[in-house]
């Protein structure tokens, strides 16, 4: 009764076959998460405050696990799989994004700005950019759900819904942290 992963994937999707939009969502969200992990990975070396370091550690843990989950979903369906850095963008159907950045992704200039910041400056930039980044992930979920035939697969629906609620919740938390910094900074 034990199915091979590929056979299980086929069984999962037999009822509601996954679509190109589902594959594209999983593929691109890996790259999206990868940038968040790079940003969060700077917290220690850029002397972030303890609360920002905790937040960053949680983001790394959560998004690394989700990347592994999305890679496995793609692999089991014999789709192209980007690496953990998300930088392998040899995606046959990447035309949906073309040269434009995915929603919320930091530009090179923004990444450079964050990389240059230290201590309280880093905290402020990190929170501001991560809020932007998370808003982008929420938009990607909304776009997926607004696509014909998408997210009928229960695994895709659940992952996308989880990303939506987790990142919405984290945005609210980061807004509170930014306000704290602002008040403390004025003192």
């Amino acid at each position: 009764m034990s199915l091979s992963p590929v056979a299980r994937a086929r069984a999962d999707s037999a009822r509601h076959p996954y679509t190109a939009a589902d594959v594209s969502f999983m593929y691109h969200m890996i790259g999206h998460h990868a940038q968040a992990i790079v940003m969060a990975g700077w917290a220690d070396s850029h002397r972030a405050s303890p609360s920002v370091r905790t937040l960053a550690a949680r983001i790394i843990n959560a998004q690394r696990d989700e990347i592994a989950f999305m890679q496995q979903w793609l692999r089991n369906r014999l789709q192209p799989v980007p690496g953990e850095t998300g930088m392998d963008m040899a995606m046959p159907m990447s035309g949906s994004h073309g040269d434009t950045l995915m929603p919320g992704m930091l530009t090179e200039a923004q990444m450079h700005q964050l990389d240059q910041a230290r201590s309280a400056d880093f905290d402020r930039s990190f929170l501001t950019f991560m809020i932007q980044h998370h808003h982008g992930a929420v938009v990607m979920v909304q776009n997926l759900f607004a696509t014909y035939g998408a997210a009928q697969d229960e695994i895709v629906f659940k992952l996308a819904s989880d990303i939506n609620v987790d990142q919405t919740t984290e945005i609210a938390r980061m807004e509170r942290m930014l306000l704290t910094l602002q008040i403390q900074g004025a003192l």
């Binding site: 919405t168 945005i171 609210a172 807004e175 509170r176 930014l178 306000l179 602002q182 008040i183 004025a186």
Partner: peptide
């Protein structure tokens, strides 16, 4: 404190209020 809070919220009119949805 209230003035600083209003400034922060005013600078981000599209951001969510700090509660859950």
């Amino acid at each position: 404190i209230a003035r600083m809070t209003a400034q922060r919220q005013g600078s981000n009119p599209n951001g969510p209020p700090p509660g859950p949805t």
